[in-house]
């Protein structure tokens, strides 16, 4: 019990870094996902090609490799060294953003064609069509996968411990070294991650429910966990 009392402040401090990187990475990933996903759903073949090159390349490289490249290799190229936290946010954002872009593209494609036709009949421009009709409707469809990606990014943030950012994983490593309590050190880290994940899951579920309510779809009964967290990211390689 003593171990936990002493270690709790350390884990909480580590959780601050984990959360910082998760939130920062999510913001970046979200911006990329929207921009690249919308590009990928345009009629221009050139823009679509651009979007799919981005998606394939950044899904193809693991966030860890990308982070190492940004942290170790890029300074040799540019002479400018990134802050470790920033390198991590960039790597995770670029990587998860590629998965998010596919999600956005798919959700846009899933908006019924008849809705698109109604916007033509009302003479809306492309921008108006996207902003007023397509994206608000696609939003509800995007959310479940976005939820999985948030969890995926949060888990992925553990790699920052390898470039000496003192996140939860780093704290666990330190405690293992200094106290020798291997099992407790890592078990506490796992539980902390799990708790954070459950909070994100709950928040995303609230967001999903409100999005569905706005579209007039009131779920008859609370949905069971539809997909495993992160399945879309991990399984979304295709």
């Amino acid at each position: 019990m003593n171990f936990f009392v002493d270690a709790l402040p350390l884990y909480l401090n580590g959780a601050r870094y984990t959360l910082l990187i998760t939130v920062g990475g999510c913001a970046l990933a979200f911006a990329i996902a929207m921009a690249v996903g919308i590009l990928g759903s345009t009629r221009s073949a050139a823009l679509r090609a651009l979007a799919s090159v981005y998606v394939e390349v950044f899904r193809g490289v693991a966030a860890l490799v990308l982070m190492f490249w940004l942290f170790y290799a890029m300074p040799l190229l540019t002479g400018y060294r990134l802050e470790p936290v920033f390198a991590a946010i960039l790597a995770l954002g670029l990587n998860i953003g590629a998965y998010g872009a596919e999600n956005v593209r798919g959700a846009i494609k899933a908006v019924p064609r008849s809705q698109y036709e109604a916007t033509v009949a009302l003479n809306l421009s492309w921008t108006q069509r996207m902003r007023l009709v397509v994206l608000p409707q696609a939003w509800a469809q995007m959310l479940p996968t976005f939820g999985n990606l948030v969890i995926e990014l949060m888990k992925g943030s553990a790699v920052v411990s390898l470039i000496a950012v003192s996140d939860i994983t780093f704290v666990a490593q330190q405690l293992r070294t200094f106290t020798g309590e291997t099992v407790l050190a890592f078990a506490a880290a796992l539980v902390t991650y799990f708790v954070i994940a459950q909070v994100f899951v709950a928040l995303m579920r609230l967001a999903e429910r409100s999005a569905n309510r706005r579209l007039g779809r009131i779920p008859a009964r609370p949905r069971r966990r539809a997909k495993p967290a992160g399945a879309a990211a991990k399984g979304g390689a295709a």
């Binding site: 008849s114 809705q115 109604a118 009949a121 009302l122 003479n123 409707q137 706005r214 579209l215």
Partner: peptide, 16 residues
């Protein structure tokens, strides 16, 4: 097509 309006078989109201 500013001059033209259309009503569809399936209404196509915007659910959002």
């Amino acid at each position: 097509r500013r001059k033209i309006g259309m009503v569809f078989q399936q209404f196509n109201l915007f659910p959002n």
